[in-house]
Amino acid sequence: MAMAADALTGGFTDAPRQSARAFRAALEAMARPGSVHPLTDLAQAPDPVSPAAATLLLVLCDPETPVFLAGAHDCAAVRDWITFHTGAPLAPAAEATFALGPWQALMPLSAYAPGTPEYPDRSATLIVDGDFAGQPVTLSGPGIETTTHAVLPDIAALQANAAGFPLGLDFYFTSGAELMALPRSTRIASAEES
């Protein structure tokens, strides 16, 4: 079980300050659903993890947060990198606090914990990494003054997730050095309908 050489690299050189800046972007993103935020302080994980997804993992994951890996992201190099840099245990989807992978591989959404009526915070956050077949949508709700436009995969599945509010999953969509968030509170309409 030799660790891949790059499992040990790609972390932050000044974790307190770099994590702080990255978290601030992640917070602004979650506060303003559909808005795209570039990250300036980037971590680098093995392929196929994007720098933005790697950065989110470093900022949010630790031994308290089981992580589920889906699809091509579930490979030895990525598993070793997460273990070394965050200490997060790898877990099945149902037990995961965070899940990472491409959209199709992460499906179905019913595999993840949506929280409980007393504790809706005991829910999973999905980091959807890389490109997906998307459709234009109009978003409204908390964090959005009127409406905003975005492109999302599988509108029906995401609308069903939002319909379960206050239970449900929250999403980060990561690509390259950028991220966008979609909390469960956002109302989603197909752009064609609106």
Binding site: S19, A20, L27, A31, P142, P166, D170
Partner: peptide
């Protein structure tokens, strides 16, 4: 002390709570 006093693990725990708070406003 660490940047902004708190250790990184504590900040991560608080940051995760803040994101949940943002996703479920008022909870």
């Amino acid at each position: 002390y660490n940047f902004a006093y708190l250790d990184e693990q504590t900040k991560r725990m608080i940051r995760r709570a803040l994101l949940k708070g943002m996703a479920v406003p008022g909870y």
